[in-house]
Every structure is written in structure tokens, then in C-alpha cells.
């Protein structure tokens, strides 16, 4: 179990690049729009625009590309599978044959598109979490959900839950580590055996972890209640979100990109 090597949540790299300085609300919206637009792209020209946008974002974010592609290894198999399936299963003009398998030009094209789509999705999502701290992402989400309060979405409460969860992850990680070491000192084995055995071996970790989590939860509840916490109504904040001219530029560029990609569906169908 490669648990608890690093206790930091997320992969936030602090910095002062243009992307770092964008308002979290802008960044979340941009990534959301990008992801939606990505699924409307059906031709090479659209992918060129999308790749250009992603490259521009990465360059502006001044994030080492190594960090971006670190998470890629686990999906490598899926990427190759996707590519192979597209290559051999799409019907069309024969590119080459490999035993009973027939690769087609159309398959090659489809395969490249699909792999690109997945890569772009991944890169943009990582870029968001690399350049925005979890806390400001939570603030951004709260602000974006804010208008939905009127249809019954408890934006403040949801954000408060996220904030508490983020606050306690390091604590609980440490706790889990301590419990595991204590149980291992008593002869517990977390790493071997068949799946059922391994799952069962988690019980001596789970029970104390839950007990501790519930105790902490109730202590926190008492502390907050005794300080008269009563939800988001009329609360003030230390850090206010402020959109600047930078955010306007980002929004304009993103809107342009979205219009072009969606427009390309009609201008150059396939």
C-alpha cells in the first residue's frame, strides 16, 4: 500500500504565472467549456484549434510538462487499447493488414482523434488542479453554485463540507498511517493474500479510523456551535474573489476558441 508518501492533497504548484493569477471561477468555467467543446470536435481543424488552446494554456501556466504527464502511466494501457480498437475496427480504406486484422486510414484518423481527446481532457483537468489550490477551487465552486441557491442548492453548505474535508485529509492520513503501523506492530498484514483476505485485513484499519473521524467530527461540531456558527447567511470572508482584466481576456479567448471549434462542425463537416 503506497499510502501516505506525501501528505499534500492535490498537486498544486504555487506560482505567479498568468494562469495562476486567474480567478478560480474563470478557470473552472474555462475548463468546463473546454471539456464540452472537446466532445463536439469532429475534424482535424477543430483538433488543431483545441491543441493550440491547450498548448497556449500550458505555456502560460509555466508548469513543467513532466508534471502534466506524470499521471499518464496508468491510462497508457487504455490509450493504446483505444487506439488499437479504433485502428482495426473502423471500416474504410486499407492501410495495412496484420494477420486477420485490417487497419484502415479512417481507423488511424479516428484513433488519433480519440487519443488526442483523452489527452486534452487529462491535460486541462490537471492544469486546473496544478495551478489552483484546493481551497480556492472550493471558493470558486461556491461562487459558481451561488446563483443556484434560489433553486435550493445549498452552495455555502456544500463549500463548507469541502473545506472541512480538505482540512482533515492530512490529519486523517496521518491517523491512518499511525493505525496501520500500530496494527502491523501487532502482526497485522495489509499486503498479501487473496482479495478477500486483503479486504478483510482492512477492518483493523477501518474501525479505528472511523471512530477517530466521528470523534473529530463531533468535537468540531461542538466547537462551531459554541461559537455560534449558523451557516452562510451574512458571513464575511477574509479572501474575496476578484475578477480582473486578465479574466476578461481569458474569457474572450475561450469564447473565441469555442465558437471556432463548434463552427468548424458546419464549415468543414468531417
Amino acid at each position: 500500500m503506497s499510502m501516505l508518501r506525501d501528505i499534500t492533497i492535490g498537486q498544486y504548484l504555487s506560482g505567479s504565472s498568468v494562469v495562476h493569477r486567474l480567478d478560480p471561477r474563470t478557470k473552472i468555467t474555462v475548463v468546463g467549456v473546454f471539456m464540452i467543446v472537446l466532445f463536439t470536435a469532429i475534424n482535424a481543424q477543430a483538433y488543431v484549434v483545441l491543441v493550440g488552446f491547450a498548448v497556449l494554456s500550458v505555456v502560460l501556466a509555466e508548469v513543467p510538462p513532466r508534471m502534466l504527464f506524470r499521471g499518464l502511466r496508468p491510462v497508457l494501457f487504455l490509450l493504446m487499447l483505444t487506439f488499437a480498437l479504433q485502428l482495426f475496427l473502423t471500416r474504410g480504406h486499407v492501410l495495412f493488414t496484420l494477420g486477420p486484422l485490417v487497419a484502415t486510414w479512417e481507423g488511424l484518423r479516428q484513433g488519433i482523434f480519440m487519443v488526442l481527446r483523452l489527452l486534452l481532457l487529462l491535460v486541462m483537468a490537471s492544469l486546473l488542479t496544478l495551478t489552483t489550490s484546493p481551497v480556492s477551487l472550493t471558493d470558486g465552486l461556491e461562487a459558481i453554485l451561488g446563483p443556484f441557491r434560489f433553486v435550493g442548492v445549498p452552495a455555502h453548505e456544500l463549500a463548507m463540507m469541502m473545506t472541512i474535508a480538505l482540512r482533515f485529509i492530512p490529519t486523517l492520513m496521518e491517523e491512518a498511517d499511525k493505525i496501520m503501523k500500530a496494527q502491523m506492530a501487532r502482526g497485522a498484514d495489509f499486503e498479501s493474500g487473496n482479495p478477500i483476505r486483503r479486504a478483510r485485513s482492512l477492518i483493523p484499519l477501518l474501525v479505528p479510523l472511523f471512530v477517530s473521524a466521528f470523534r473529530r467530527a463531533d468535537e468540531l461540531a461542538t466547537a462551531m456551535e459554541s461559537r455560534c456558527y449558523r451557516g452562510g447567511h451574512k458571513r464575511t470572508r477574509l479572501h474575496r474573489l476578484r475578477a480582473t482584466g486578465l479574466d476578461a481576456y481569458a474569457a474572450a479567448v475561450t469564447a473565441g476558441m469555442a465558437l471556432i471549434v463548434i463552427g468548424l462542425r458546419w464549415w468543414i463537416p468531417l
Binding site: 499510502m3 501516505l4 474535508a165 482533515f168 485529509i169 492520513m173 477501518l206 473521524a213
Partner: peptide
């Protein structure tokens, strides 16, 4: 109290993803 317990269980769930 419910809100905080939910948050805490969410954090526990996240920690357990590493297991």
C-alpha cells in the same frame, strides 16, 4: 453535526482511495 460528519466521511473515503 450531519454536515460535518458527511465532510469527515468524505475525507475518510478519499484517504481510503490510497488503500
Amino acid at each position: 453535526r450531519v454536515l460535518i460528519r458527511v465532510a469527515m466521511l468524505g475525507a475518510v473515503a478519499f484517504v481510503l482511495m490510497y488503500a
